[in-house]
């Protein structure tokens, strides 16, 4: 168990090193940073002096190590556009994205699992068939289209919910959260639904097919032969057995909810890191782009690590080294 965790953490660090190299390489290959820093009147001497001072003459591996060392300190450089440290800029935007991702992730998992179980148990029912057909829309429509449609329906025509922005925020331990205020919560509904709809349909379809598979298995037949009721069979026996593959996919999806919040944040002008990233791209604000890349990489790797550890909690067969097997 411990060996497994250490091995997995080692792999995670390797992945992060690779991601770090890509984000470091962005500085090297996307435009000339000195151009931006020096301005029109700089002399060649100024240029050489700055190059030396910033360490740009050092060999690439040395520069990469320096970059990593700075990144560990949380120092990602200064944003070209707003002139503030990138770490600070991202940190101020991160809560908005995280709360949006958390709400849509929760909606996706909650309704995905409930609908998935329902459509598996009542496979031939009218409601189940309707849900399955409707879910095709969620799978096939692009996110921005769903966002625009929701704005058209609920903001423009019905006028129930705001179409953009984050509303008011309330401060908890110095973190500004919108979900705690009424106007903030209302502003979150449309973006959260937009962001979570695809994930929800995906989780639902996955839970359904896994559940159908499990319900055909021998131990479910045996559970019925033991006279257990439907509820005990569906929720006590079948659900847990469907969860292992579901957790894998769901974990990956949660990572992409955060990473691909970019589109939703753009459609709804949600002031999170996704919108920050899009603006950074427009202004070629490389320090911000590179830090965002590292951040998303770190989030993905962390979630994957947690998913791997969750397997152990759910499936006792993976802990084979902990208890001895018995003989005849």
């Amino acid at each position: 168990m411990l060996a497994f965790i250490i091995r997995r953490i080692g792999q995670a660090l390797l992945v992060l090193l690779a991601v770090g190299f890509v984000s470091f390489a962005m500085f090297k290959f996307m435009g000339d940073p000195l151009e931006n820093l020096l301005g029109q009147e700089a002399t060649l001497a100024d240029r050489a002096e700055l190059e030396e001072r910033l360490g740009l003459n050092d060999p690439i591996p040395v520069q990469y190590m320096q970059y990593l060392a700075r990144a560990m300190d949380g120092n990602f450089g200064v944003s070209y556009r707003v002139g503030l440290p990138v770490g600070e800029v991202i940190l101020s935007r991160l809560p908005a994205t995280l709360e949006l991702a958390a709400l849509s992730g929760f909606l996706a998992i909650f309704f995905g699992i409930i609908f998935g179980i329902y459509t598996a148990i009542r496979r031939d029912g009218f409601i189940a068939q309707t849900i399955m057909t409707t879910s095709l829309i969620g799978v096939s429509l692009p996110t921005f289209l769903i966002g625009v449609f929701l704005i058209w329906a609920f903001a423009v025509n019905l006028g129930w919910l705001p179409s953009f922005g984050r509303g008011q925020t309330a401060s908890v331990f110095g973190v500004e959260l919108a979900i705690l205020t009424w106007s903030g919560f209302k502003s979150m509904i449309l973006p959260a639904v937009t962001l979570g709809l695809y994930q929800m349909t995906l989780i639902m379809r996955l839970v359904r097919s896994e559940m159908l598979e499990v319900l055909r298995s021998d131990y479910i037949r045996f559970a019925r032969a033991r006279g257990l009721g439907d509820r005990a069979i569906h929720f006590g026996h079948a659900l847990k057995n469907t969860l292992v593959p579901v957790i894998t996919i769901t974990g990956l999806q949660l990572g992409s909810i955060i990473a691909f919040a970019i589109i939703t944040e753009t459609v709804f002008q949600w002031p999170g890191v996704g919108l920050l990233f899009i603006n950074a791209v427009n202004f070629v604000d490389i320090p911000v782009m590179s830090a965002y890349l590292l951040l998303v990489g770190a989030i993905f790797v962390t979630i994957n690590l947690i998913v791997d550890l969750l397997y152990f909690v759910i499936d006792p067969r993976l802990q084979a080294d902990r208890a001895g097997g018995g003989g005849h």
Partner: peptide, 18 residues
């Protein structure tokens, strides 16, 4: 389970593994 008990062929798959 109460008045009629059943034993199936494959004990490896008759029990819930989790």
């Amino acid at each position: 389970g109460k008045r009629i008990g059943m034993v199936f062929q494959d004990p490896l798959t008759s029990l819930n593994p989790l």
